[in-house]
Design a protein around this nucleic acid. Structure first.
Lengths: 336, 336
DNA sequence: CTGAAAGCGCTAACAT
DNA sequence: ATGTTAGCGCTTTCAG
């Protein structure tokens, strides 16, 4: 394991009594090359005996590939989301024996950005922007420079040809109809997105109600501003104003639902018997709350996996462009 | 910028009318080598003209260094902490032109761990465990294998020779005496660590009280279990039981303090005029709350920076071992 | 002060 | 079916 005593493919060749080329053929399972079984065995044995690990820098050099991709993210991303996307990327990387190089985006100048530098100096073969804030200007720069990249984001403003984005309308519909099927009644909605024409969450709720032939009234809505998720008095107002307990409530983020759980426990409202609760949003706590939270969740892992595979397409064929839309998932748990 | 038309140092040499060696000397500011100013100029000009970026894979190969270090972390780490540690690592990496390779720790077998593989195949020169759960067995494996590593952690159980850890006692004392100096009275403590002999937070509070000659009573303490930070009824109990508003309260995590802010606002308790509040713990929200939160914070950036520099020592000299203890910092804001 | 040349460890024509 | 060999782009002795 000592750095200067590591075995090279030459050593393996000598040990196995074959040429270096044969070692390479065997160890890489080179396509279209036939190797006698006993030769193969000998090579494999020698490699094991010498504890041989191919030097990837040398391979990289020869192949003119960095065998690594750069990951650019945003400082503010939650680690839960980041890690899940990364897991997906990772699984797409493993079969290709690629690594992830973390890039920091500190410079204002695109030219000086770390990922650009890394690409130019052959340290990475392509770039994934995972939930990173990326400007149109930046994207254009990459396109013009022929730098392989993919953007993974749930709602990106800039126009880009290589994109993995998401759609939550189907899964909101799924959640709403699930709740409707389980108990007749009305379905309320709470959160910061109430009334917001541009919010896919709120709009998803509205059109789900329509499709399900459920009544839509202002009383069923309550706007709870960001940061007020833990303020239980909003719930008092909501139920007092409504005058009854609706059969279900959809929250536009998970924390709001957890807060509602607490309120309900205090008031003796049983979930899901008296009222079902579902949330739109991804949280690592959803499976562990009491009751566990049924939620409409971003396909984080798939976004990473798909995005990474897409990047390899771009790197290989210089793909013209590809926009993939992944559906969010309705994950049914105890609260509905 | 196109991959197959990138200029090499050979191209620069030809353009400048010098040899490849001279290009290398100039671009690396090779120590002990004198180059005529006009030659240097010519090289620099040619490099700029051809938009030359040295191929780091080739450099890596020649130098027999991967020029990257592996980062191993824990899935559960908060992104705020992770990112801050990473920033520190990054700043230690930049002057050395090193990159960060992200490692996932999925395998149960140490032998198969990604960072071990990466090291053996020359993809990384060393490993930083940043807030990662690492077993004694694992550390011993690294030591025996002579694999350069450093552990960065606030409280690690395993014994390790290359460690950056922290101490919060001084800064807790600082916070307590600051609050005492500002207003006479008693200083309470709340949180999950109350009564815990092994908690550096609670113990830090206890010994700070002693040093400051402040009274210590059970009534000044309240145990608020994890997950109950938003349950304001604990505060009711606390103040009712105590019978008065203490001059200050120390919370053992930031979220608890934010909750206390909310409670105080409802009850008309002015912070810091009626009661000062400080917290032990790192939160990105502390500077932005209302009032902003005085807090005892982990030196995240410094931990990363110090740990990374330490790793380079290990890689260079095979350092025998080094344990650095960094102090937490008392950051005074509006709430005290 | 600068150049020629070797060589890092690997892969892939090409030759046998 | 396997071996020979050139060469990826760089750094660095060694010569001049």
């Amino acid at each position: 394991m000592n750095k200067n005593t590591r075995a090279s493919s030459k050593d393996v060749a000598r040990e196995a009594g074959v040429s270096q080329a044969t070692v390479s053929y065997v160890l890489n399972n080179a396509a279209g090359i036939k190797v006698k079984p006993e030769t193969r065995e000998a090579v494999l044995l020698a490699a094991k005996k010498l504890n041989y690990h191919p030097n990837l820098i040398a391979k990289s050099m020869r192949l003119k590939k960095a065998m690594s991709i750069g990951i650019v993210s945003d400082k503010s991303i939650s680690s839960f989301m980041f890690m899940n996307v990364l897991e997906g990327i990772k699984d797409a990387l493993i079969p290709r024996n690629y690594t992830m190089t973390l890039c920091f985006n500190r410079s204002q100048e695109i030219e000086d950005a770390e990922h650009i530098n890394y690409y130019r100096s052959n340290r990475i073969d392509g770039i994934i922007f995972a939930y990173a804030d990326i400007s149109q200007e930046h994207i254009d720069f990459l396109s013009e420079g022929n730098i392989p990249y993919v953007v993974i984001h749930t709602n990106i403003k800039a126009e880009t040809k290589h994109l993995v984005k998401t759609d939550m309308s189907k899964s909101i519909f799924e959640a709403v109809s699930d709740m409707k099927n389980k108990r007749e009644g009305t379905i309320g909605y709470m959160g910061r997105s109430v009334g917001n024409k541009d919010s896919p969450r709120f709009q998803g709720y509205i059109s789900a109600l329509e499709k399900c032939n459920l009544p839509m009234e202002d009383k069923l809505l309550i706007n709870i501003p960001a940061g007020e998720e833990n303020n239980l008095s909003y719930f008092d107002n909501y139920f007092n104003n409504l005058g009854y307990i609706p059969s279900a409530v959809l929250c536009d983020c998970a924390n709001l639902a957890f807060s509602l759980f607490k309120y309900s426990a205090e008031k003796g409202i049983k979930i899901p018997q008296d009222m079902a609760v579902a949330a739109i949003g991804t949280s690592n706590f959803a499976p562990r709350s009491n009751p566990s939270l049924s939620a409409i969740e971003a396909p984080l892992y798939e976004m990473g996996y798909t995005g990474c595979n897409m990047l390899f397409d771009v790197m290989k064929s210089n793909s013209e462009g590809n926009v993939v839309v992944l559906d969010w998932k309705y994950v049914e748990r105890e609260s509905t």
